[in-house]
Structure formats: structure tokens, C-alpha cells
Design a protein around this nucleic acid. Structure first.
Length: 506
RNA sequence: GGCCCCAUCGUCUAACGGUUAGGACACCAGAUUUUCAAUCUGGUAAUCAGGGUUCGAUUCCCUGUGGGGUCACCA
């Protein structure tokens, strides 16, 4: 079945409308045709569907382009990242293609495939309501279908409000073979004469989409399941225009935890929110790809390259998938753990800057805002290193390492207490740590660990020494180990923090 | 309501018509540990229901149920 199309070079497209933030579900709708075209050495086209001038905005288009770029989803024809046309079918914004749609519209009217309709909106709406109430398909039944040419011209001249409808053939089975779902068939009478344009210069979605798919020589339309009802309409249009329709594949939707279309109520929906939270593009791509697709093996950590390599449409799932943020978090953490430390640090710095802990003063040099000290990127790297393996999202770095940027730690003295220790025991414990640390000459992590553990092992309960020290240095219930912190903090600050902790207990 | 789509652990999913129904996340327990992670080991947990077809159905067919999509002068 695919064999006959194989000689033809594969051309797929992603056709978003810039009417809001780049939705995470849209990311998937972009990813699958992308993978498919790359896998088959075809062409991937980005077409901006902005025929709705009211809702389409330049800023959404920009966000879209940036988002795809961030994800590493590239395209061969369309609007480049700077908003310029690229490829041979320019322009790629539907708002700039009116003349092309007009050409097809005029031809269809001429050939009797489409006609002007002067029915008032309210009347059409009322009829729909009525049909629905008696349990029939709510369609426009073609009242203006057979208006004479003269009448149409007269009405047009009078300036009567009008739209252009498609003359849907009646009682015809329209079938297409969905690459994911198999044969899908509907009766044309459930379609009615749908509107395809507001006027000759304002084509509507079903028309513009059908025209562009043939004009751009798309071989495979891979899009969301919500377009299944549109496919027979577009098939009809394409045939009426005298072309052959492409192959279709409809992806299932991504659902929220409430099993409804993923919406803001049940979770973050925009890619931008995930970026801000500190998810890595690799993780998002890997996760989203596995929402409705799998290689059939047990491998599930996939780079983009590997995805392209192993991708196949047959392995796409028919049923909708629930967006499970826990798994994304796990996957993201796993990618973070694998990141080279230097790169990870570079990615964390913006979060620290945004949280007002540090500011950049020179290349790779930062000022700690509270203390006025200067830190180099390498110092920050040491801090990040302590927390690399417990980071799930980059944004978490702030609350994890803020202790290194604070003048004074803010915590209650109860936190210093390990198990049943009394205040005086804690003070003794801290004094012992302080004394030991001030006597250590070789101030590196390994030696610090060694000396501290030697000391800790002398007492029956190691926690009596380790816990108060760790809290004195971090002010936190959970953190990295005490000596790791000491190594990064330095002797002077360490001793000062221990002193501050002792003062709390007096 | 009409039309269309879908149905395996809580979630993502694997299983030429023959498997003790497999894996991953989450969860629970254990090991490790000053804490939290990470890591390792083990565990709980699923074929929507009813009919067929078949020697044998998670798998094929029908019906029901449930969920979803769509019915715009939006895309």
C-alpha cells in the first residue's frame, strides 16, 4: 500500500495556527511528521495556518518557531526562524496565499462544485438546532444550491451578506485509509454543504488546507485525531479540484489526568512553562515521542537521532494517552544526571540569576548579591555538582544551593536536634566539629570526609555528630553531605556558620 | 442527539491465535545512609462486559458499556 507512493519523495507538513502558546500536544503533532520525514529522507514543511486574522498573532508565531528550534525540530521549507520564507512553494503563511485560494475557488464555482449562499446566519443556526432536536445530522441542506446565475449576481451586487459553500455530493460513501487506524468511512449526507470561504479572498480552513496540501505536494498528512471529521471534507475538495489526495495518519490526542483533552486545569500545557520549569529538550522529545509510540523493544531512552532511526508509523498507538508528569520528571532527572557538569551549570545559572541570588558581572564571573562576594563559574560548578543527581528540574537548583549565596541561614534551632539530643549535647557536638575542622590542614573533600568519619565512628551514633553539623551549614532538613558542603563553603564560612548555630542554642 | 474514533496494571506500554500476560514510571518493602536523593534487590498491581468463531482467544467478529473527538462565516 505504501509501496506505490515510495517512488515519490515523501513530503510531510506541520501546519499549526498561531493562536496561542505552543501546546505540548502540538509539539507531538509536530514531532511525528518530522520523524517520519527524516526517517524516510523526505521533506518536512512548516506551514503557518493563519487565515483567522482575528486570532492569529505574530507573537504566537514567533513563540512557535522558537519552540521548535529549542526542541531541535528542524524543517526544510516554510518560514525560517527569523520569519522569512524558505523553500520553493513560498509563501508559507496562508494569510499570504489568498490569490492561490481564489484561483481554486473561482474554478470550483465555475465548474459547479461550489456556490454562493445568502442564508442569514441565524436561519442556518436555527435549522441546525432543529435537526439536532429531531435526532438528525445537523447540516446545511443546500437551500441556495440552485440559485440562478442571475440571482446570485443580483444579490452580490446588492451587497447581501454571503458565504461560499461546497456542493457536497449526496449519499456517497467517502472512505480513506488511515495509516494508523485503517479504513475510515463516512456518508456524505452527514457532511452537508459546508462553508469553504467567506468570500473569494477569504478561504476557510478546509479549503486552504486542502489546496495547500495539493499545491505543496504533500504525500503524507500526519495530524491530530481532531481532524478526522475534516478529512472526508478535504478529500472531497481535493477530488473536486481534480487532484489525488495524500495519505492520512491521525494521531490520538494527549489527555490530562482527568482523561479529557489536556488543559490548563489539569496541568501545564504550554511548552514555555516546561522550559521555564527546567525540563530539557531531550527529555521532552523522548517523553512526548513515547506518548503513543514505542519501538517494540524495551529500550526507552532515546535521542532524537535514535528516534529518527527507529521510527515507524505502524508502531503508533491508536488510543489516547494520558500525560503522566511523573514519568517526565523521572526522565528529565535521568537526562540531567547524564549532562556534563559544565553544561549543566551553564543551564542552571539563569535560574540563580532570576532568583536574585547572583548577577553576572563579567564573562563567567558573578556577584553574590547578598554578600557582595565574587564567584566564578567554577565555584558554581562545585555547588551544582553536589546536587546533580537529585535534580529533577533545573528550577529546583535555586532552593537546593541558595545556602551558598546567603549571608545568614534562616532556620529554627529545633532543626539542629538529632533524635533525642539535648541542647547542650548539640552544642558539644558542634564544638567538636568546629575544632576538628579548624585543625584540618588538607582542605579537600576526600580528606575532610576521611577525618570527619573517623571522628564520627568514635561515637556510637554517627548522627549525633553529622546531623547538627549538616544543619548548621545548610539550614535545611535535606541536603548533600556535611563535608561536601564544607569543601565548597570553605573553612572560614564553615566555622562562622557553626558559631551561629551554637548561638541559636544559647 | 447524529457521525467518527478508542479500550491490557493507577499511568505509558509489550505480547505471528498457544507466555507463569513482559517492561518502564509511580507505589510498597529491603540493602546503603546523618538527612533527602541517586543506586541495587524484591513486591503489590491489568486484558471493560456478554455473546460468538476456534482444539485454544488480550489478539478475529457482533452487541452492550465506558471514554474521547467532531458537528463554526475557528483551525
Amino acid at each position: 500500500m505504501i509501496a506505490k507512493k515510495e517512488e515519490k519523495k515523501i513530503r510531510t507538513r506541520f501546519a499549526p495556527s498561531p493562536t496561542g502558546h505552543l501546546h505540548i500536544g502540538t509539539v507531538r503533532t509536530a514531532l511525528f511528521p518530522f520523524l517520519f520525514s527524516r526517517k524516510n529522507k523526505g521533506t518536512f514543511i512548516l506551514r503557518i495556518e493563519d487565515t483567522d486574522l482575528e486570532r492569529s498573532k505574530k507573537e504566537w508565531e514567533e513563540e512557535l518557531l522558537k519552540g521548535l528550534n529549542w526542541l531541535n525540530i528542524s524543517w526544510d521549507e516554510g518560514i525560517d526562524v527569523n520569519g522569512k520564507d524558505m523553500g520553493s512553494h513560498a509563501p508559507y503563511r496562508q494569510s499570504e496565499r489568498a490569490s492561490i485560494y481564489r484561483k481554486h475557488l473561482e474554478k470550483m464555482i465555475e465548474e459547479g462544485h461550489a456556490y454562493y449562499c445568502f442564508c442569514p446566519k441565524e436561519e442556518v443556526e436555527a435549522e441546525k438546532q432543529y435537526l439536532m432536536s429531531i435526532g438528525e445530522a445537523p447540516v446545511y441542506r443546500g437551500k441556495c444550491r440552485d440559485l440562478s446565475k442571475e440571482t446570485v449576481e443580483k444579490y452580490l451586487k446588492e451587497g447581501r451578506p454571503s458565504v461560499i459553500r461546497f456542493k457536497t455530493p449526496s449519499n456517497q460513501k467517502i472512505a480513506f485509509n488511515d495509516l494508523i487506524r485503517g479504513k475510515i468511512e463516512v456518508d456524505s449526507s452527514t457532511l452537508g454543504d459546508f462553508v469553504i470561504a467567506k468570500d473569494l479572498d477569504s478561504g476557510l480552513f478546509n479549503l486552504t488546507c486542502a489546496v495547500d496540501d495539493v499545491e505543496m505536494e504533500i504525500t503524507h498528512v500526519i495530524r491530530g485525531e481532531d481532524h478526522i471529521p475534516n478529512t472526508p471534507k478535504q478529500t472531497l475538495l481535493i477530488r473536486a479540484m481534480g487532484f489525488e489526495e495524500p495519505e492520512y495518519a491521525h494521531l490520538s490526542l494527549i489527555l490530562g489526568t482527568d482523561k479529557k483533552k489536556l488543559s490548563k486545569r489539569t496541568g501545564k500545557t504550554s511548552l514555555i512553562d516546561y522550559i521555564d520549569d527546567g525540563y530539557l529538550p531531550e527529555a521532552i522529545i523522548n517523553f512526548v515521542a513515547f506518548l503513543g509510540w514505542n519501538p517494540g523493544t524495551e529500550k526507552e531512552m532515546y535521542t532524537m537521532e535514535e528516534l529518527i532511526n527507529d521510527f515507524s508509523i505502524e508502531k503508533i498507538q491508536k488510543s489516547a494517552a494520558i500525560f503522566n508528569i511523573d514519568k517526565l520528571d523521572w526522565m528529565n532527572g535521568s537526562y540531567i544526571r547524564k549532562k556534563p557538569l559544565y553544561e549543566l551549570t551553564q543551564m542552571c545559572v539563569p535560574y540563580l540569576v532570576k532568583a536574585n541570588l547572583i548577577k553576572e558581572v563579567a564573562l563567567e564571573k558573578y556577584l553574590i548579591i547578598e554578600t557582595g562576594e565574587e564567584v566564578h563559574i567554577e565555584d558554581i560548578e562545585k555547588m551544582v555538582a553536589l546536587y546533580q543527581e537529585r535534580l529533577k528540574k533545573l528550577s529546583e537548583i535555586v532552593e537546593l544551593i541558595d545556602l551558598f549565596f546567603k549571608k545568614e541561614l534562616d532556620y529554627g534551632k529545633e532543626l539542629l536536634k538529632w533524635k533525642e539530643m539535648s541542647d547542650s549535647e548539640i552544642v558539644d557536638s558542634l564544638r567538636k566539629s568546629s575544632e576538628m575542622i579548624s585543625n584540618i590542614l588538607k582542605f579537600d573533600k576526600e580528606n575532610l570526609e576521611k577525618e570527619l568519619m573517623e571522628e564520627a565512628n568514635k561515637i556510637s551514633n554517627r548522627g549525633n555528630l553529622l546531623w547538627p553539623l549538616r544543619v548548621a551549614l545548610t539550614g535545611k532538613k535535606n541536603s548533600a553531605g556535611p563535608m561536601e558542603i564544607v569543601a565548597v563553603l570553605g573553612k572560614e564560612k564553615t566555622l562562622r556558620r557553626i558559631e551561629e548555630a551554637i548561638n541559636k542554642l544559647k
